[in-house]
Design a protein around this nucleic acid. Structure first.
Length: 503
RNA sequence: GCCCCUAUAGUCUAGCGGCCUAGGACGUCACCCUUUCAAGGUGAAGAUCGCGGGUUCGAAUCCCGCUGGGGGCGCCA
């Protein structure tokens, strides 16, 4: 049994190299749920120590995605906190990392390395040619004397600072996700990682660790791709003489075909895209919470509060999950159906505006009309972006590219024309245009004509909507209004007549 | 290649030594409801619990090996 000591402090530390993808969101969710469950704090920190891959605006974009998903943070770059700043490039300028590097250097636990990346590449290639597939780099300066180092420095050669990783022995650590089991790594399989780049900027391994320590992070919940670097972190903590946080490496989300983890380039997984397609943040949150975690053998739909109450790290899976868009879509449909018609109306307006069906800033009558239409598609919607397509015929004229679709099963062209004429005439006689009246009128007609309900209703459906699949007929007629309904039926009759002449 | 992690139906998962003739969900199929499509309801197919050894009275559950899958092996995070 895992016992968690409160108070708990966790963080999410994205790198502003692009958009936030869905796998990152899942990791955020686990961190956030963990913090909220134990009444602790969730901290946001920007890890922008990669000058080369930095993308302007990415950090803002990531924050916006997080807000949309519904995650909030107690300390962060935008709201500050007791451990400011929360951006690593700023912390680097303050010399925060340098001071610890100096300490390590002084104590001989790290060393300056004057070898260039190009030289390493050459050595690697040579090693590979000799048939050595693995290359554990231990720099030659590892054991240089102070004089040798001073001489190289005097020449003005750029250098990196590397950690002096023990040549032998074992490094081990525990992982909450793996039931607290110890993971052991032979130091022989490690290499001397870079701590400080020649630019003076710290590398992730160093920066995140110092910040985690300074910010009193108690639990590090991160993707399992970090498992293999954790030994370095343990060694670094030991070198600095600090207590380690508790680790929990959460499983990756694999691509749909199972071939590798989700990738920004190959998969449509930008968080913003889910907003565009009409996913509800609540649904995405719920789905993602279930990627690598489960509550019991049957509960799936859970509110944010329920998730907070139920989330525990010991129920996190240690094997990878698989991206399943169908399941997400299904869940989104469930959340849409749970929503009130008023709320769905408001959420749908932007999609209808964007499709050009209504004004960019919806007019009051447009809003009212959409509200009237919402019940017709409410339970047919899985992604909100589908709404414009489902509702287009209420806003745009219909056409009959294939008039034959107007002809019901077991009926011919003249029969259909006659039937539509009769229906049009009956409906034109109605003084009250509501669902019960329309229904009564048409059902009576079905009996009188000796037709099947599906035959009459089918042809009217195509006549007024231009399609064979549409919302329920009476409600659609009612929402369309008497004039437009009658006009469209006339247009359908005319289309059929023209078609029969050319045949 | 080396190191680490991992393994229940197409997919997500429940299972923590007897409650398992392996439970739930997505997807698939059928039927019911019904004016189409959905939603809803009922039901079905689908897992020799990756394989092989052990431990045990008893294993999906514990141990070992193999195989498969994933991750890592950067002056990227």
């Amino acid at each position: 049994m895992i016992h968690i000591n409160a108070p708990v402090r966790v963080r999410f530390a994205p790198s502003p190299t692009g958009f936030l993808h869905i796998g990152g969101v899942r990791t955020v969710i686990f961190n956030w749920l963990f913090a909220r469950h134990y009444g602790g704090q969730f901290i946001l920190r920007i890890e922008d120590t990669d000058e080369k891959r930095y993308v302007a605006g990415a950090a803002e974009d990531i924050l916006e995605s997080l807000r949309w998903v519904g995650v909030d943070w107690d300390e962060g770059p935008d709201i500050g906190g007791p451990h400011e700043p929360y951006v690593q490039s700023l912390r680097s300028e303050l010399g925060i990392y340098q001071q610890y590097v100096d300490q390590l250097l002084l104590r001989g636990l790290a060393y300056k390395s004057f070898i260039t990346s190009e030289e390493i590449e050459v050595m690697k290639a040579a090693a590979q040619e000799r048939g050595l597939k693995s290359f554990r780099f231990r720099s030659r300066e590892r054991d240089w004397s102070a004089d040798q180092v001073a001489a190289a420095e005097a020449e003005g050669k750029p250098y990196t600072v590397r950690l002096k990783v023990p040549l032998s022995g074992t490094t081990s650590f525990h992982d909450l996700v793996r039931g607290g089991e110890a993971i052991n790594v032979n130091n022989h399989d490690l290499y001397d990682i870079v701590l400080l780049k020649s630019s003076g900027m710290p590398v992730y391994h160093l920066a995140h660790l110092i910040d985690d320590h300074l910010m009193n992070i108690t639990h590090v919940i991160r993707g399992e791709e970090w498992v293999s670097s954790t030994a370095y972190h343990v060694l670094l903590y030991q070198a600095l003489g600090w207590d380690m946080p508790i680790y929990a490496h959460v499983p990756n989300i694999l691509r749909q075909d199972g071939r590798g983890k989700l990738s920004k380039r190959k998969d449509d997984v930008a968080t913003n895209r889910f907003w565009e397609r009409g996913y509800l943040p609540e649904a995405l949150f719920n789905y993602l919470a279930l990627q690598g975690w489960s509550y019991d053998d049957h509960t799936e739909i859970m509110s944010r509060d329920e998730l907070i109450e139920r989330f525990t790290i010991d129920r996190v899976q240690s094997s990878p999950a698989r991206w399943n868009p169908d399941k997400l879509k299904d869940m989104n449909g469930i959340y849409i159906r749970q929503m009130s018609a008023d709320e769905l109306t408001e959420r749908l307006l932007p999609y209808l505006s964007q499709a050009g069906l209504i004004n960019a800033t919806p007019l009051p009558e447009e809003r009212a009309y959409v509200r009237h239409l919402v019940p017709l598609i409410h339970e047919r919607l899985e992604e909100m972006q589908e709404a414009p397509e489902l509702l287009s015929f209420f806003f745009q004229p219909v056409e009959y590219p294939n008039p034959l679709l107007l002809i019901p099963k077991k009926m011919d062209m003249p029969g259909t024309i006659a039937t539509l004429r009769e229906a049009q005439s009956r409906l034109s006689e109605l003084f009250i245009w509501d669902v019960p009246t329309i229904e009564a009128s048409l059902r009576t007609l079905v009996d009188e004509l000796g037709l099947k309900a599906g035959q009459l209703f089918g042809t009217i459906r195509v006549a007024i909507t231009g399609r064979t699949v549409a919302p329920p007929l009476f409600e659609t007629l009612e929402a369309l209004g008497q004039d437009r309904s009658l006009d469209r039926m006339l247009a359908a009759i005319q289309t059929l007549e023209e078609a029969s002449e050319t045949m």
